[in-house]
Structures are given as structure tokens and as C-alpha cells.
């Protein structure tokens, strides 16, 4: 038996796998919540149902990733604890997904940019060295292929539609483009995951994403900037530095769980 040490324990190294899983889960949790704001407000009934369906899939994917994150962390937090009881600075989603839903054109363009990212990422992650991540990714890939067909079809309809629909879709592309470099800005977590064979090389992912996005935008008669801007300014979501919008969304999202802790029905 050893006597109690007066030397403080070394600071715990950040758990890269846990952080990585939070990013995957939080992107889907936050975008799923944003999409659910369309429920009852869609432009047509079919679209109302479609957006709610996509939202549901994203929340399901978030559940799988956050549940695994909780298991990896090993502190007894499940997916609900991570969703309802973390503060805004502890969320690891990219800024793109937390922006308010805007008009239908904004929602479609944001969804399309995210969906293409999701198909290339889930395709790559289905070959992850981590068997649990590979299984979740393979399952998610089937769903996001439907999502990207839906948002991609709308890109064509809006971009190559009326003068007004084209104007709004183009404005959304212009407004959202600057938020996309964050999706591919690799940091220490991403490098650790790449080295472990868990996650793909983000620069290769970016080329694949850019080519698919450009192809559809071109067919939709929408203009994309020549290059992605340097990710020096608009980033921070991965380390908890969010826009003012996320806190408001979480307040509404978390209030029932926090007002009635442990409630069941």
C-alpha cells in the first residue's frame, strides 16, 4: 500500500477518440435539431415530412455516435447525458450546422453542403480501423445517400428554377461557402485519428467533396468561388468557440430535460 501522494496527478491527456466521436455526434445532433424547426412550416406537406425524416435520421446517427463517445469516455455518460447536460462550450459541432435555418433556399444549400460531406466521410469511415465506427458509418451511409439525393435534387430545382429561387440559392451558396473550410481543417485530434487508421485524411476528403459539390452546382447554374477560403477566421466549433446562435438553440433543446431531471414517460 502506498501513502497518499501530495504531487497532483498529471493532467489527463485529451481523449482523442472521445473528442472525435463528439464532433461526429454533435454535427448531426445540432443539424437534426435545426431541421426539426421546419416541422409544420415546410413549403409543401411532402417537404415538411421529408425534412422531418432527414432530421430523424440525423438524430439517430447522433445517438449512435454519442452513445459510443460515452462508452469511450468511461465516465458513465450516455447519449442523453451528453446531449442534454453539456454546456455550449462543450459542444464540438462545426459552425455550419448551428446557423439559424434561414429561408428554404438557405436550408437546402446548407443541407446539400453537409450531405455531400456526410457521404464522403461516412464512405471513408466505413473502412475505419475502429470496427464500431465502421459499423455506424456503413449504416449511416445508406441513409445519407437518400439525403443527398433529396437536397441535390432541390439544388437543381432552385438553382435552375425561377429568377427568385436562383437568386436565393446563389445567395445561400455565397453566404455559406466561408463556413465550409472548417470541415476540412485538420488539428491534433484529426491527425491522431488519421495515424490510428480511424479517420481519413481530410485534405483528400476535401478534394472529393469539392468535386461533387462543384458538379451539382454547375448543373444547377450556381456559381461557386474558385477556392475554399483559408480556414483562419471562421472556425472554432471543434474546440467549443461557437456563434451566438448555438446557445439559444440548446436552451430550447435542453430545457425539458433540465427542468425535469430523470423524468420518464
Amino acid at each position: 500500500m502506498t501513502s497518499p501522494s501530495v504531487v497532483p496527478a498529471p493532467a489527463e491527456a485529451p481523449n482523442a477518440l472521445f473528442e472525435f466521436l463528439l464532433r461526429l455526434g454533435d454535427d448531426r445532433l445540432v443539424l437534426g435539431s435545426r431541421l426539426s424547426e421546419w416541422c409544420g412550416h415546410g413549403p409543401i406537406l411532402e417537404e415538411d415530412i421529408a425534412l422531418s425524416n432527414v432530421s430523424l435520421d440525423l438524430l439517430g446517427q447522433a445517438t449512435m455516435f454519442l452513445r459510443l463517445a460515452g462508452e469511450v469516455e468511461g465516465k458513465g455518460r450516455d447519449e442523453d447525458a451528453l446531449a442534454y447536460w453539456r454546456e455550449v462550450v462543450d459542444f464540438r459541432n462545426c459552425l455550419l450546422v448551428e446557423l439559424p435555418k434561414g429561408d428554404f433556399g438557405f436550408t437546402v444549400v446548407r443541407q446539400f453542403l453537409f450531405d455531400v460531406h456526410s457521404v464522403v466521410l461516412m464512405d471513408a469511415l466505413s473502412r475505419s480501423s475502429n470496427a464500431e465506427i465502421a459499423a455506424i458509418a456503413a449504416k449511416s451511409l445508406k441513409e445519407v445517400k437518400y439525403h443527398v439525393r433529396h437536397s441535390g435534387d432541390w439544388m437543381l430545382k432552385l438553382g435552375d428554377g425561377t429568377h427568385e429561387s436562383h437568386r436565393r440559392a446563389q445567395k445561400a451558396v455565397d453566404d455559406l461557402w466561408r463556413f465550409t473550410p472548417e470541415l476540412f481543417a485538420a488539428d491534433d485530434i484529426d491527425r491522431a485519428m488519421l495515424a490510428a487508421g480511424v479517420a481519413p485524411d481530410l485534405s483528400a476528403l476535401k478534394d472529393q467533396w469539392l468535386s461533387l459539390v462543384r458538379d451539382v452546382c454547375e448543373r444547377a447554374t450556381l456559381t461557386t468561388p474558385h477556392a475554399l477560403p483559408q480556414p483562419s477566421v471562421i472556425r472554432g466549433g471543434r474546440t467549443g468557440a461557437h456563434t451566438e446562435h448555438l446557445g439559444h438553440m440548446l436552451a430550447e433543446f435542453q430545457i425539458v430535460a433540465r427542468s425535469h431531471p430523470g423524468a420518464t414517460w
Binding site: A50, D123, R149
Partner: peptide, 29 residues
């Protein structure tokens, strides 16, 4: 590919009259 726009596969058979003269109104029901 990963991004396949516009449903390309054969149309569904109507469960009521067995016709293939059908169209998809929404991929989400």
C-alpha cells in the same frame, strides 16, 4: 457514385392495380 441525383431506378408497381405507370411524389413518407 455517392451522389446520384434524380431517381434512376425503375418505378414502383402500384399495389392496387399492378401498373408500373407510377411516379415518386416524395422519397420520404
Amino acid at each position: 457514385g455517392l451522389v446520384q441525383l434524380m431517381r434512376a431506378r425503375p418505378s414502383a408497381q402500384c399495389p392496387y392495380c399492378s401498373s408500373y405507370e407510377t411516379e415518386v411524389r416524395s422519397e420520404f413518407g
